[in-house]
Design a protein around this nucleic acid. Structure first.
Lengths: 309, 309
DNA sequence: AACACACGGTTTACGGAATAAACAGTCTTA
DNA sequence: TAAGACTGTTTATTCCGTAAACCGTGTGTT
């Protein structure tokens, strides 16, 4: 009761916030937490979280395993610091561009990118809201995107959790495929095809009629992105939710009436609107094509600039 | 080549489908795959996936570690079978009750329940669509729920992935809290309060203004369920999506380009291209909105013209 | 200047993990 | 009855995290 200003910050968290009081006496330091974390991240990037052992990290730095314990309390702390390093902070762009939806989508994209660049982050067990500077920055960015909406703070957190969750889920699945690609030495298409083939032999039409139908329809060979689909639906739902009741009261079961389509389909205004949608879809497709091309060119340009791998 | 119906079904998967050729000759078997899996699941339930070692499982059955390898090819196979056992199959209720939305929500609830009963399932790395009977059953149930909608099979899969993803995410977070509760011996409230306290000391208003505001608002002490919120928004979005375009034609979520190295992310031309994509996406969304509005108006107009519906 | 000792890095040791390889019983089948 | 397929065991290898004791080095104090 005397000195407990801080309810004993978990040691690793203290390190992450840079509250590490560095000592003066004794020999010169040859390592640093930063270098250790850096080396560990490199190993994890290359060979996964499982390959990160104290011995491996130490070896990469040219030291003996036990020496790391002078800088890091336990492996768990090291992992936390690695996570913090790999997570990074959201770019400034996510704070400025567009409306709340664009900004959340940008956050999603960046977050997913980080997950794909450091898939091992997804293997770290989650225990509560991570209390580190960078993850706080992500949360703050998400909340700031929603600042102009009239959602409650609890709802804003829930929305942010939705975005993060989608990125996490997408990362988990995509990283899984990437791992299989690397391990089995196949490209994505080959995996899709072999998965599809396996399904075709295992999934019978009488035991799993709908799934079988999906297979027949080639749904497992489709390479469209189901995760941005999910995010789009989620944010659409949020949008509905926001505009449903501008004041505090928000309970609306809103049972869905299936519209009698034939009727509407030949409404003039509706037909025009639908044509606009189709045009917009085409524009988006073209933009995607250009984007891919630009990416390809950029990659080539970089490769030409420094030919060493 | 004589009887090889399937070219190398991964051994574990063959086991899961019960296509394991049991031998006749030799001494009577004292164990069985089922008992091994059962024991392993019990251990995992009690002490987590990390506690499941071949030695531990064998010890629980009164055998030596190596003896298990007569029944299971490798630990990986055992884990797959454990997953299959713990995942179970969706209840019959999810096939009958209500409309697609109710049924998907029921699937979510059941799935989450399984995750909470066997949290270690969430620690198993995902590599592709699991080709086991039970996970096929879940997928089939989800697809069957959407059978009456006019979504494409690809879209139905995407929706199912959304539901599963939400359950997975919810399970991950909730199981994380449960684990901390068990390890530190605190109840949920105590954890919330200590997390809140830690945040209050670490998150400053000038570094993280919005997050700080959320803390002040007590958003981290709120115990409402953000995951069913997320699911509700997602399904709402799906509902919009379904009613948005009455015919089969709709936005195809092409995978946008994830730059594989940070290098090209700051290539000027690429950035421009990506911005163009974002603009196009926004235009498409706007078009969709107008389309929906047109549909609504058209419907009203029709309703007014002939009041009997 | 002398000295104690805090500190950095090493060495050794322990318990536990997965599984390869060789082994000795046991029961079916020819 | 004999071959040999099949059982579960034993032994050994390699790698893991980290506790504990150990030196040499440099600093702060006397």
């Amino acid at each position: 009761m005397t000195e407990a200003v801080e309810p004993e910050l978990p040691r690793g968290i203290a390190l992450a916030w840079g509250v590490a009081a560095n000592p003066q006496r004794g020999p010169k330091r040859e390592m640093s937490v930063e270098r250790i974390v850096e080396a560990a991240v490199e190993i994890a990037d290359a060979e996964g979280l499982g390959a990160v052992s104290m011995a491996a990290v130490a070896a990469r730095l040219g030291f003996t395993p036990m020496s790391l314990y002078r800088y890091v309390n336990a492996k768990e702390d090291l992992i936390l610091l690695m996570q913090e390093e790999a997570t990074g902070a959201p770019s400034e762009a996510t704070r400025t561009a567009g409306g709340w939806r664009e900004r959340l989508e940008a956050l999603y994209r960046e977050q997913l990118q980080h997950y794909l660049a450091h898939p091992w982050v997804l293997d770290i067990p989650i225990s509560g809201v991570p209390a580190t500077p960078n993850s706080a920055a992500w949360m703050d960015a998400g909340l700031s995107a929603l600042a102009d909406t009239d959602l409650s703070y609890t709802e804003r957190l829930a929305v942010m959790l939705l975005v993060t969750g989608t990125a996490h889920w997408a990362g988990t699945i995509l990283a899984g495929y990437a791992r299989v690609e690397r391990e089995r030495g196949l490209d994505g298409d080959a995996i899709s095809r072999s998965e599809d083939a396996m399904f075709r032999t295992l999934i019978t039409a009488d035991a799993y009629p709908d799934l079988r139908a999906a297979i027949e329809a080639g749904a497992f060979l489709d390479d469209s992105d189901p995760f941005s689909f999910a995010l789009a639906r989620g944010l659409e739902g949020v949008s509905d939710y926001i505009s449903a009741t501008p004041d505090g009261h928000r309970e609306k079961p809103q049972s869905w009436v299936v519209p009698d389509d034939a009727d509407i389909a030949d409404d003039k205004k509706f037909r025009e609107a639908r044509k606009a949608v189709r045009d917009a879809e085409k524009a988006l497709r073209d933009a995607h094509k250009l984007e891919r091309q630009a990416a390809r060119e950029a990659r080539e340009r970089r490769a030409r600039q420094r030919p060493e791998a």
